[in-house]
Computed example of a mutant assay.
Amino acid sequence: MKSISFLKSIYKLGILFLLLSLIFGLAIMPALSAEKGPIKMVIAHHFPASLEDNEVQLSMVRFKNLVEAATDENIQVEIYPNCTLGTEVEYTKEVQAAGKTIQSSILSSGAFSSFFPSYQVMTCPFLFPDFPTAWAFFDSDLFAKFMDQMRSETGLKYLGTFDDGGGFVAFTNSKRLIKTVEDMKGLRIRVEENPAHVAIIESLGAKAVPLEWSQVETCLASGVAEGQFNAPGLNAAMKFWELVPYTSWTGHLYNSLNWVVNDEW
Rank of each mutant, 00 (worst) to 15 (best):
E153W: 00
L177Y: 05
M150H: 03
R151G: 09
T161S: 15
N173D: 02
G186P: 00
D183F: 13
G186K: 07
Y158M: 13
D163W: 02
A170H: 05
G155Y: 01
R151H: 08
F146E: 12
D183I: 09
R176T: 15
S152Y: 00
Q149R: 09
S174K: 03
M184Q: 10
G186C: 01
S174H: 01
V169Q: 11
T172R: 06
K175C: 12
M184F: 07
G167A: 12
F168Y: 12
K179C: 04
G166R: 00
E182I: 10
G155R: 10
T172Q: 03
T180M: 07
M184E: 13
G167W: 00
D164Q: 15
I178P: 01
T180V: 04
R176P: 10
D183H: 06
K175N: 12
L159V: 13
M147V: 03
M184L: 05
K185H: 01
T172Y: 03
G160N: 12
G155Q: 07
L156E: 07
T161E: 00
L177H: 05
Y158P: 02
F171Q: 02
Q149N: 09
D148M: 15
E153M: 08
D163P: 00
F171S: 03
E182Y: 06
G186S: 02
M150K: 00
L177T: 06
Q149M: 07
E182P: 00
M147A: 10
G167Q: 08
L177Q: 07
L159R: 00
T154L: 03
G166I: 07
T154I: 07
G165Q: 04
